[in-house]
């Protein structure tokens, strides 16, 4: 880990240097919605450094999580022709710098990478993309409505699950601090200091202590055995309002279920991998007509227990970072935090 102090007046050019040579994925507000947009620095028309600096400073969470940069919503996996089946090479020309990623999403990407990297099989398509991505993290000043990262043991002010983390100044006289946590991050910081945008410091990450680390609350976890909660909790009542629309799974930073779809393209067939959702009845429908998760009761239970119990049991992490997206986006007002509290016997 290295730390460079960047004076306020050099902040914008320092961020510009970080994203130099990368396609920058920057949260930009359009029609009132903050979303990551991929922008090519070579176009030269937009003030990329300015946008990126604004994104770091901006205290909002993008509507969608940045998971699509590792795990795209649709990707070509392989191409069949009459005689061969060839894996589609990942486009490695694009090195992407994802700017302004908040601690909840950085922790979620860690979960996503663990699921695809660990276990009996490794998914190189997802884990391989990490090498071409520079994650530039930044903290949140305030909790947003629906956010509960503090109950999920995540410090909203700081995270080391990235290449570079930018800590904002606490007062007007203070400077920005750029921390690096990977070899790639170290290199960029070297260039930044050599370029005269900042100077190295032995400053340790404040871990947000200046504002309280934000995770002093009791951690929201499910302690009970899966078989116990499976039948005892009132899943029917809990899932009553759920419409099964699946928006929670699409905007969730850790949801990673997928399907393969074939499409004909001339003499060839392209097999795509597309995001899928456990909220849909066909997700688990057997060809025979049997469906182990036939109603929304089973499907909603799967979503909650997968996040809070199954991933934790298999990979060591709870697959919910309290980003609050599903709570803010649900048209029926479902609230995973309250559900977990309810089934754990905590007063909502």
């Amino acid at each position: 880990m290295k730390c460079a102090v960047v004076p306020r007046e050099k902040f914008k050019s320092a961020v510009g240097l970080l994203i130099d040579g990368y396609v920058a994925a920057i949260p930009v507000k359009e029609n009132g919605v903050l979303e990551y947009k991929k922008m090519d620095g070579k176009a030269g028309e937009k003030d990329l450094a300015g946008l990126a600096a604004y994104a770091v400073d901006c205290d909002e969470l993008p509507y969608k999580s940045p998971k699509e940069f590792l795990f795209p919503q649709v990707e070509e996996l392989m191409v069949f022709d009459n005689d061969s089946c060839t894996a589609v090479e990942k486009d490695t020309r694009d090195k992407i710098a994802v700017v302004g990623v908040k601690p909840c999403d950085l922790n979620a990407l860690k979960v996503l990478l663990t699921v695809f990297f660990q276990g009996k099989y490794k998914d190189d398509n997802v884990t391989g993309r990490r090498e071409n991505i520079m994650l530039i993290g930044t903290g949140c000043a305030k909790k947003k409505p629906g956010c509960f990262c503090d109950e999920r043991g995540i410090n909203k002010n700081f995270s080391s699950e990235c290449d570079i983390f930018i800590e904002k100044p606490v007062d007007e006289n203070d400077s920005f601090r750029f921390y690096s946590f990977t070899v790639g991050g170290d290199d960029v910081l070297d260039r930044l200091v050599t370029g005269g945008f900042g100077s190295y410091s032995d400053y340790e990450p404040a871990c947000g202590q200046r504002e309280g680390n934000g995770c002093e609350k009791e951690e929201l976890v499910i302690e009970a055995e899966e078989t116990e909660l499976f039948d005892t909790a009132d899943w029917e009542g809990i899932s009553e309002r759920c419409l099964g629309c699946g928006i929670c799974t699409y905007i969730c930073p850790t949801c990673h279920c997928f399907d393969f779809r074939d499409a004909l393209a001339g003499n060839k067939t392209i097999r795509y991998r597309c995001w899928d959702s456990c909220m849909y009845p066909k997700f688990t429908l057997h060809a025979s007509g049997h469906n182990p998760r036939a109603s929304k009761k089973e499907r909603f239970r799967q979503r909650v227990l997968h996040k809070y119990v199954y991933v934790k049991k298999n990979f060591g992490y709870v697959a919910c970072t309290g980003c609050g997206r599903c709570i803010r986006s649900c048209p029926a007002g479902m609230n995973i935090r309250n559900v977990v509290r309810e089934i754990s016997g905590i007063r909502v």
Binding site: D123, F258, F260, C278, T284, Y310, N314
Partner: peptide, 24 residues
């Protein structure tokens, strides 16, 4: 057991029974 599966390698999320994946 049989289950609907996409990947067969413990990633796609379809065939689990609790935390066990029928495919792996």
């Amino acid at each position: 057991l049989e289950m609907r599966m996409t990947c067969g390698v413990g990633k796609c999320g379809k065939c689990n029974i609790g935390h066990k994946y029928v495919c792996v």
